[in-house]
Amino acid sequence: MSTVTDAPTRTRGRRPDDDRPPRRIGLSQRLGTWDVKLSPYLYISPFFVLFAITGLFPLLYTAYVSMHDWDQIMGQGEFVGLEHFRFVLGHSDFWVSLRNTISIFLLSSVPQVLVAITLAALLDSNLRARTFWRMGVLLPYVVAPVAVSLIFSNLFADRFGLVNAALGLIGVEPIRWHSDPLASHVAIATMVNFRWTGYNALIFLAAMQAIPRDLYESAWIDGAGRVRQFFSITVPMLRPTIIFVAITSTIGGLQIFDEPRLFDQYGRGGAGSQWKTLTIYLYELGWTQSNFGRASAVAWLLFLVIVAFGLVNLAVTRRIADTR
């Protein structure tokens, strides 16, 4: 049967011999059976145990906390039912944060996917110094969001920032990056895009390279140009990848915290909540106002938002990738 040439087994120096006498019956065999039966469960248990304790339990317990008065210092208080949800849903901060979160998410994910696909198409050619370019686009990935945010909040300073200075050179009025909601969303989305566009481009690149080349050849014969090929072959074939990228960025993007938190030195998302996101709101309720009950209510609502968005996302991306 198999002639093993690989290092791992060779080190043990023996091979299965057909005529090996049966030994170690009894206890060791029974142990062997247990070994076979239990080991798999043992091996997968770390994940399940840890997930149960640090993932599942906290999520469920969040629901419990959300129905109680719960001060960070004083601990659990009275059962209040859905009071915290009523409060949060009735307060403008929640809706403004929701608006900001979605706006920042859209501003970061949509352009990001488009640019990443374009970038992937550029990389998917017979480039000189291929590895250099691929590594180059990935560089921002290793910069921590906290550092990215410190740098960009400086670049986007309202009066003494480089971006406004540059805009001034081409005659554009200074943009109020820290005052105007939409402008602040653009600035924050820029930070997200800075870090992730190259990363996603590489994912798309890998997917592009897996597309069978004969598809292009037959299209070529049919007289389709490169642009046409891109839209009629590449994009549809990338559908699963687009869905994948969209879903992962939904889960992460809607929980955005680092970038808006460090966009100014207060970290509360602006005096008019211009760029307050749901996670910042959650933090503010829980750790600034000490109200764990309300913070938990926001956590659950955000959870629902993410689920809803994931579903919408799935439907929309399917749709988009289907047309063609």
């Binding site: 997930f51 640090t54 993932g55 339990f57 906290p58 999520l59 317990y61 969040t62 419990y64 906390v65 879903i247 889960i251 809607l254 929980q255 996670t279 959650l282 829980g286 764990f292 913070a295 938990s296 956590a299 659950w300 955000l302 959870f303 993410i306 994931g310």
Partner: peptide, 17 residues
């Protein structure tokens, strides 16, 4: 499936623990 669960949202209980 758990990859799609936003576990960050369990911060409050996790902090309590």
């Amino acid at each position: 499936a758990t990859m799609a669960v936003p576990t960050q949202l369990g911060v409050v209980p996790l902090f309590i623990v």
